[in-house]
Amino acid sequence: MYYQSLNIAEGQQGDAVLLTLSGHLTMGDSSGGLKTHLEGVVPAKGNNIIINLAELTYVDSYGVGELVACLTTIKKSGGALRLVNPTEFVREVLHTTRLDTLFTICDTDEEAAASIARQDQADAGEQGAR
C-alpha cells in the first residue's frame, strides 16, 4: 500500500458545511490535520458539519482519533456532525472500533443535511418547551 496525503475539499450542503475527504487519514498526514482544518471552519462557517468519506481509501488508528476529535469539537460547540458513505474499508474500521455506534452515518450528503436539519428542529422544539 502506498501513502496518499489527505485532501480536504470544502463546500456547502443545505445549511451544513460539507468536507469531502480523499486519500489517507493517517498519522503521517502532511495536510495539517482534519481537526485543525475543522477548527478553522467552525468559527467562520458554523458548527453543522458533514464529512463525506467516499474517497477516503485508508484510515489508521490516529485517523480514527481525528474523527473522534472532530466530533468532540462539534459536540462541545453545540453543533452536529454526520459521516457520509464511507468506503468498505473505513466502514469496517468504524465497525471494528465500535465507532459506528458513536457517529451518525448517512448514505448521501442530502440525507446527512436533512438529518442535521431534523436535529436542529428537535433541539429548537426542546428549547421552546422549556
Binding site: 498519522m27 489508521d60 488508528s61 490516529y62 480514527v64 482519533g65 473522534v68 476529535a69 466530533l71 468532540t72 459536540k75 462541545k76 472500533t97 465500535r98 465507532l99 458513536l102
Partner: peptide, 30 residues
C-alpha cells in the same frame, strides 16, 4: 473522552510494536 464522545483507544498494524505504539498514542490523546 467519556463525557463527550466515548472512545476506546485502539491501534493496528502489521507488527505487534506498531499496534502497541498506535494504541498508546490513542490512550494519551483524550
Amino acid at each position: 473522552n467519556q463525557n463527550t464522545a466515548p472512545f476506546t483507544p485502539c491501534g493496528w498494524g502489521s507488527s505487534l510494536e506498531a499496534a502497541l505504539e498506535q494504541c498508546i498514542i490513542a490512550i494519551r490523546r483524550f
